[in-house]
């Protein structure tokens, strides 16, 4: 197993008085893809949103336990969520390009972080669009509105936008659930390439997708981590009965 990048220790999460995550303890290795699977409402999205502190935005959300990123508890006192999110990017379920040009979408992050140099921005935009396999399709139309792109292109643009900030970790929260099979295949190919440079955590509803793209898989059920291990092992020789039942399609 390679170095651990993110580690969750006894993480509990409540929305008001409803507990959504119970004692989650797991470690996500560096430059690998960790998939989180489980039926709707099992807490997988709640968990991934803990990693970049997106749950801070949710009213009455309360978290205890530790979540370590590069050895530091991100729920510690002197951690700035804004700084943290520069290192831990996120791609959402529904493509959410900003209503501006393709170029401005990708340049948004660097600009927000103070970069003004046009040549430098041009270079980052080109690199990011190439890395997200979008350059061949939109490289010549950077001034076109991002809203005019197809759903799959929009999602890859959102990935490019995330890459432009040069994060270490990319979180994918069901990135293909709104996309057609061809666009889905492109995103999966992209994840396979990106894992050489980034630590990836992906929440997915689609078990085949987890099997295809991930190195490690965590199975969540009713807010608890049932089983975590190498993807091959989880899919071929699960230890727990409920994991096997879910993977073989007996529920969920």
């Amino acid at each position: 197993m390679s170095e651990i990048e993110i580690e969750s220790r006894n993480l509990d999460l409540w929305y008001g008085s409803a507990q959504a995550l119970k004692e989650i303890t797991m470690a996500m290795p560096e430059k690998k893809v960790t998939a989180i699977i489980g039926p709707s409402g099992c807490g997988k999205s709640s968990f991934i949103r803990c990693i970049n502190r997106m749950n801070d935005l949710v009213k009455d959300c309360h978290i205890t336990g530790e979540l370590l990123f590069e050895g530091t508890n991100i729920y510690g006192n002197n951690v700035d969520a804004v700084e943290l999110r520069k290192k831990i990017g996120m791609v959402f379920q529904k493509p959410n390009p900003f209503p501006m040009s393709i170029y401005d979408n990708v340049a948004y992050g660097p600009r927000v972080h103070g970069l003004r140099n046009r040549e430098e921005l041009d270079r980052i935009v080109e690199e990011s669009l190439k890395a997200s396999a979008l350059w061949n399709e939109v490289g010549d139309i950077p001034d076109r509105s991002a809203i005019d792109l197809s759903g799959g292109q929009q999602q890859r643009l959102c990935i490019a936008r995330t890459l432009a900030v040069k994060p270490k970790v990319i979180l994918f929260d069901e990135p293909c659930s709104a996309l057609d099979p061809i666009s889905t295949a492109k995103i999966e190919d992209l994840i396979n390439t990106l894992k050489h440079d980034y630590t990836i955590v992906i929440v997915t509803h689609n078990m085949q997708q987890a099997a295809r793209v991930s190195d490690y898989t965590a199975f969540f059920l009713l807010g608890e981590l049932v089983e975590f291990g190498k993807t091959k092992q989880i899919f071929e020789l699960p230890e727990k009965k409920s994991t096997e039942d879910y993977i073989t399609g007996r529920f969920g």
């Binding site: 935005l57 700084e83 990017g89 927000v112």
Partner: peptide, 25 residues
């Protein structure tokens, strides 16, 4: 709301998010 989340997830502050994404929209 997805636009706000998208901006915050890139490490933008609340004011940057409001002034550069939400208000123009």
């Amino acid at each position: 709301g997805g636009l706000r989340e998208g901006s915050l997830a890139l490490g933008a502050t609340k004011w940057q998010t409001v002034s550069r994404v939400v208000l123009p929209s």
